[in-house]
Amino acid sequence: MFATTQWSVVLTAGRGDIPQAQDALEKLCRTYWYPLYAYVRRRGYSPADAEDLTQEFFAWLLERKWLGKADPQRGRFRSFLLTSISNFLANEWDKARTQKRGGGKVISLERDEAENRLTWQPLSYCIPESSFTPEQSFEWRWALTLLDQVMGRLSVEFEQEGKKELFDALKPCLLGESSTQPYATLATKLGMTEGAIKVTVHRLRQRYRQLLREEIAGTVAAPEEVEEELRYLFAVLTRR
């Protein structure tokens, strides 16, 4: 089902100058910058420093010098990132600062938006993140980002078929019929038969599950790890 994954492309390419590997890594960084940023902020850095640091980290990452080091089995991109950023903060950050690479923005970080999301804590006892360690915070944001990617892709697919409204109306059905309007009501509203709604929802769920696994596959070293990673992410989200 998933012959290769983005992360496995990066790993197998090693330090060789393979454009696909670089593209894959850049794409992964663009997608998952926010959990890293949140992690750095949770470690106590100011927003400006956190942005700077995240950019430097990506620059370091994209140089791929780390790939030359022994261990070919790097595991999952998620845990690799967390270990790497932690080491980077401990060892590389000062070096990077003194060298003043001057790489500027490696990827686009929407800092204001990131800050908004970080500071939203109206119910500190309801939102688990406030009691999380920086590492747990990273994982929690990671899971959210991954789901956001999946839902974004699903939404785009419907939009491309001119069915944005249908997607918006039916997406709550992903969680089950009773989380939304009864199918009969939806059918009336959308001018479809109840049977057609059921079929569409069924396909929506199937596609969602497929995209979810594809997205996860992009971040693990081998396809066999997808289900285990899925379970791990579930545990992350239910963590209190």
Partner: peptide, 21 residues
Amino acid sequence: PIVPGAPQGMCPECLLRAGFE
């Protein structure tokens, strides 16, 4: 409560649970 930045405004936990089936 649904956190800001939740995927499509949906509960991430329940969304991921739906992915298991």
